[in-house]
Design a protein around this nucleic acid. Structure first.
Lengths: 251, 251
DNA sequence: CTTGACCCTGACCCGGGGGGAGGGCGTACG
DNA sequence: CGTACGCCCTCCCCCCGGGTCAGGGTCAAG
């Protein structure tokens, strides 16, 4: 109680010192998180040193993303297992990171998917979104992330080159199909080899990626998947190219 | 207009089909995003096939995290550069990912920092938070992430071992200090070597981490930094251990 | 006494709906 | 033909963490 020590602070001083706004301090009072211990005769809020200490704790806890009611409960010692609270907070943050990552992955996929268009239309955007949704049905979030990282690693040019290669391959295969060539004919060996190389480049040889890709390729509409480049007939011919001759079951 | 084709849907059907709630569809109508083109005599909302198509687009765009007003603007063709919108959305998502990552990093650091306590108190939590805030002042987010990854890589046991080693080193150094040994005395060479090894283990030999660490070590209160293990006197003695003899300037 | 910076309360606003009250329809079954 | 059950309607308040007025009082220096 020495006369030289400051007894109380006005709301503006505290706001300036903590980086909060006056309005925020009003709000904290309203929800019962920080009620100034005194008022001046004119009704001004007067915060004592205990209030100030409490405020600094509030600010620290806010940096963990805790909600105001959780902070109040903590500071007032009302139950709440600390470790448990932090654990649940961590879980919530990880959930929202996963959500944000999914969003980002969709947005970048969309950007890449629309990059070739001069002025992309909403229709194209929706189509691409449907393709993305399809991908999300077949790949786990983890797999999608790995695919994305691979795309980043190989770079845009390599991807553009690969796209052209696929187009060439499918053109060649379509030609053989229309010529009536047997899909297992050795004449298609070079195509098969190039396909294997391309797939290896896309998946980095990871088997689970390959499995998910095959699953999608077998079940989904190829026209949607390849944006019109491959129709069902060609897709079925293509799949027969890689089937072992004995494995032809009637199912 | 064939009689066999369904002309319209009730809200509940659409809600069930899209995974939205009836309430959400009411909301979309209120904000003008999706207004059913008809009403039954009793006032029931009747959605036509165009409405349904629009709704599916809304759902697709919502998966990008777009706001309802942005979606309405897009679907109504009101200006809005598509690429620009997606770019800004991506930026926003990346901001919120960075924020979530900062939160997660604080929470895990806190968990690790409090792991040694049986039943951590709020006071200890606040102290640890202050230490974390200090770290954030000296390391960039990127550096913090690298430090964290290194901690994960070396594992808990190695960290605990390192902690014990630091304690031993500081005990030894304190002994020499109290015995009046010159900080540059060769007798401390083995300590210096162990310190260098430990720092290398912590930073993986990355120079910028080392620089930030030195900065913090030089400027901050060592008692806070080491939770009371090192006081200012010992810190200063320790720093002189690594200074070149000629480099002693008066500034 | 005035001026300018500070303070007060009260109220509405944001986003994307959740939840419920109170009451009207649709339709299948007895 | 009644009735039971599920669906639908509108209207209203609630969440969270404050932002942003509006309208008026207070403090300290000149």
């Amino acid at each position: 109680m020495s006369a030289t020590e400051k007894q109380h602070w006005w709301v503006g001083e505290l706001a300036g010192a903590t980086g909060l706004t006056v309005r925020a301090l009003h709000h904290y009072e309203k929800v019962g998180l920080l009620v100034p211990s005194e008022r001046s005769p004119a009704g001004y809020r007067l915060y004592g040193s205990a209030d100030v200490r409490r405020l600094y704790r509030i600010v620290a806890l806010r940096r963990l993303g805790l909600r105001l009611d959780a902070i109040a409960a903590l500071l007032d010692g009302r139950g709440l297992d600390l470790a448990d609270l932090l654990g649940r907070q961590l879980e919530a943050v990880e959930d929202q990171m996963a959500e944000a990552q999914a969003l980002r992955s969709r947005l970048t996929a969309l950007r890449d998917g629309l990059a070739s268009e001069v002025e992309p239309s909403i229709d194209q955007l929706i189509d691409t979104m449907e393709a993305i949704t399809m991908y999300e049905r077949y790949y786990t979030p983890d797999q999608l992330e790995r695919l994305e990282r691979r795309r980043e690693d190989v770079g845009e040019e390599a991807i553009a080159t690969a796209e052209r290669e696929w187009a060439e391959i499918f053109a060649t295969v379509r030609g053989e199909m229309q010529a009536g060539t047997d899909p297992r004919d050795p004449r298609l060996d070079s195509c098969r080899r190039r396909v294997r190389e391309l797939l290896d480049a896309m998946t980095g040889g990871e088997a689970d990626l390959r499995a998910s890709m095959n699953e999608m390729w077998a079940n989904e509409d190829p026209e949607t998947l390849t944006r019109g480049m491959v129709d069902r007939e060609l897709r079925d011919y293509y799949m027969r190219m890689f089937k072992a001759p004995e494995g032809m079951s009637a199912g």
